[in-house]
Write a protein that binds this DNA or RNA. Structure first.
Lengths: 227, 227
DNA sequence: CGGTCGCGTCAGGGTTCCGTCAAAGTGCGC
DNA sequence: GCGCACTTTGACGGAACCCTGACGCGACCG
């Protein structure tokens, strides 16, 4: 299900959005200020953010920057300001779309659908989403891992970590980036998490967990998934 | 360079767009009807399409569908119609953004940048930033070095040093600059670090480490990386 | 010819980083 | 409110890495 994070300090707007979104079977989180928004974005990992620029605690553009520092989640900006400069600034800071208040709910929902659709993975055939190492297969679309004909059971964190690595298959992923993508932007230094969960992934997927062939450690830099 | 396809039947709008886009070093193709637009999109593979919905030969939404049948290129719709239904229809047909005429050029360009930025890192397959010397290859994006078909393992400092040299490929890099970029601004004189790590790079990458062909020493000045 | 300077090489020691395990803390469903 | 699965912490041994000093060599110069 698609998860939406709504950020606005006007309760009636939040209410209207939440009602309309839930009616269309979106999962909705709501925040009324920038700090809460950033925290929720980190913990809940929404598929799209609807962000009002006029927040009580910080400039909306700062929220955009705070998000763009670690995620590419689509950001749809709401604002009462119509000036061109405001729009340009928000868009160049990393926003994906800009809607001025008052807005039509139909239009907003259509723009939301467009933003979500765009962010969906490119490969529409089922074949593209499956990575095969010979020892095990990872189905990114179905969120399933198969080894020796049997499905491997992964915890949410394990899966999230595996997903980031597989999506960057062959590339080195820095430990800071891994931590921030899996645990959130404030977890840039807890490298012990990585050690623990990497060990679990290897125990579940590698033929010889103490001599990993697919989850390679690059000391001091990060980890790399190799087919 | 980014290539833009502009589709509009009003010559003055096309002219204004073409002038503004070219001034910002975009490459621009223009079409004045839907059929031409589809043909140009197929032959020229634009990075983004700016599409007016009011075309003489066919409905703009049909153009969107025609494009979406085979490409995910960002489509930015221009239209004189303000009704919500029109916007929803275009967006749900596959458009990425919808701007109503008259529009501000700054805003349009910002939305264009946003659309292009979003689509850019889509091609994350085998990286493009690969430098090949014949003896070994350096993949800057994946942080990977390959020699004789096997991956070479580099320590963080080794990699960092290599990266600075490769990014200045063919140019002389002063030892002070190297030291400061790799070890930090306060390390301007510890040239022995350079000697040690340069030796390690050569041992790992050069065919004959004592007679380096790619990591050239310029006595008294610095080092140079040569393809 | 002796001295100096810059560079390449090598190996040891201190330090950081990683894998592993176990236990405590947390949240969720029954 | 209890049990279970998952996550978070802490500690420890071992491996990898970075720094350091010493030595040899060749170039250059007095």
């Amino acid at each position: 299900m698609t998860r939406v994070l709504v950020v606005d300090d006007e309760p009636q707007i939040v209410r209207a959005l939440v009602i309309n979104l839930k009616a269309r079977t979106y999962e909705v989180d709501a925040a009324h200020d920038g700090a809460t928004a950033l925290r929720l974005a980190a913990t809940r990992h929404p598929d799209v953010v609807v962000l009002d620029l006029g927040l009580p605690d910080m400039d909306g553009v700062e929220v955009i920057r705070g998000l763009r520092g670690w995620t590419r989640v689509p950001i749809l900006v709401l604002s009462a300001r119509h000036t061109s400069d405001e729009k340009v600034e928000a868009l160049d800071a990393g926003a994906d779309d800009y809607v001025t208040k008052p807005f039509g709910m139909d239009e907003l929902l259509a723009r939301l659908r467009a933003a979500v659709r765009r962010a969906e993975p490119a490969g529409d055939g089922p074949g593209d989403m499956i990575v095969d190492t010979g020892e095990f297969t990872v189905d990114l679309a179905a969120k399933k891992v198969n080894r020796a004909g049997k499905d491997v059971r992964l915890t949410p964190t394990e899966w999230h970590l595996l997903e980031v690595l597989v999506r960057n298959s062959g590339r080195l992923v820095g430990q800071k980036q891994l931590l921030q993508e899996v645990w959130g932007p404030s977890y840039g230094t807890e490298t012990n998490y990585l050690r623990v969960y990497m060990a679990q992934l290897r125990r579940k997927l590698e033929a010889d967990p103490s001599h990993p062939k697919h989850f390679v450690t690059e000391p001091g830099m990060g980890y790399r998934f190799e087919k």
